[in-house]
């Protein structure tokens, strides 16, 4: 987990953002401080709208959504044009010009030096392995490559807050890991807000989470707080038994819980998953030789429970 210095603060009050007459986001009150804040939720929950509203790309119908960072013991209100960078879900590069010209354009706009990416910014080009792509035209890039270009551009801008919309979508395991490492390393210099469906990566990366459900905040806080709110508890069952049979029996006995198998263990996750109840169930089933332990549910399981409405 990232060492916490929690410099980014996000506050919303009486916020409503809508597309025509359809309300996409309704946040009566929000105050959260973190350094890598993840926004998670089902498809259409309002994650992208949240990010766009923060960037000033989507207007608030009422209320406000503000970001600030703690700098020299005072709060600096972030201006999207001055302090933020954004990497959209699809990535971006102009189709008819080379990646190098596109990167130069951004460097000229944001750093005043078109060659910035070769000098002080070269580490981002190298880290994201963009050198072989520089001579290629935008139209020749894949979706993942386009996103790598826009990611590098975001880092080259040295923002106070870097907003990522689905950064891991479509990336293979290696690239996901590399990008997550890079975000973690850079988080000492800048804050991140990440919208993602990749709970495994979010769990490793984020120090604060916002869970959106149908445009409203369902849960927020640290990983533990959010997992507790979403799924309550996890009970792990270890020992020698017929896994499938036991899993089916548990699913019938605890219909509001999620049963998952990891290696030789079974995990029961949900608000009604308690060791005492599970022990009672096992003793009725004459499986007293099995051992139990409790833990907080993982984010993957918590979201599963949450999204299934268990």
């Amino acid at each position: 987990m990232q060492q916490e210095h929690l410099s980014l603060s996000i506050k919303a009050h009486d916020l409503i953002a809508a597309y025509d007459n359809i309300i996409a986001l309704r946040v009566p009150e929000l105050s959260i401080r973190g350094n890598i804040i993840a926004i998670i939720g089902h498809n259409g929950a309002g994650k992208s709208t949240f990010i766009k509203t923060q960037l000033g790309l989507h207007p608030c119908q009422q209320g406000y959504l503000r970001s600030s960072i703690l700098e020299d013991d005072s709060e600096l209100l972030l201006d999207p044009a001055l302090h933020m960078a954004f990497c959209p879900e699809v990535g971006s590069v102009f189709a008819d010009i080379s990646v190098e010209s596109y990167v130069k354009l951004w460097c000229r706009i944001k750093q005043g030096d078109p060659d910035y990416y070769r000098t002080k910014g070269s580490r981002y080009i190298e880290a994201l392995q963009l050198t072989p792509l520089l001579s290629r035209k935008g139209r020749e890039l894949s979706k993942g490559q386009r996103r790598r270009v826009q990611t590098a551009i975001g880092f080259l801008m040295h923002p106070k807050l870097f907003l990522f919309d689905e950064p891991f979508d479509g990336l293979d395991v290696q690239r996901t890991s590399e990008l997550a490492d890079m975000i973690r390393e850079e988080s000492v210099n800048m804050s991140f807000m990440i919208s993602s469906h990749r709970m495994d990566v979010v769990e490793r990366l984020a120090d604060r989470l916002i869970v959106l459900k149908e445009g409203a905040i369902f849960a927020q806080g640290s990983l533990d707080e959010v997992c507790r709110k979403l799924a309550g508890n996890s009970v792990h069952i270890h020992g020698s038994y017929e896994q499938q049979q036991l899993a089916d029996a548990l699913a019938r006995a605890f219909p509001n819980c999620l049963v998952t198998r990891i290696g030789p263990s079974l995990t029961l996750t949900g608000h009604t998953a308690e060791s005492a109840k599970v022990r009672e169930f096992l003793s009725h089933s004459k499986l007293t030789s099995l051992s139990l332990d409790e833990s907080l549910p993982t984010l993957v399981d918590s979201m599963d429970v949450h999204l299934r409405g268990l």
Binding site: G56, L57, M84
Partner: peptide, 20 residues
């Protein structure tokens, strides 16, 4: 359209500000 098709519209508007 060109900016939008290339996906650069939103990052560019966000980075430079609507007015600019």
């Amino acid at each position: 359209d060109y900016f939008s098709r290339s996906g650069a519209l939103l990052p560019m508007v966000a980075a430079t500000g609507h007015g600019t």
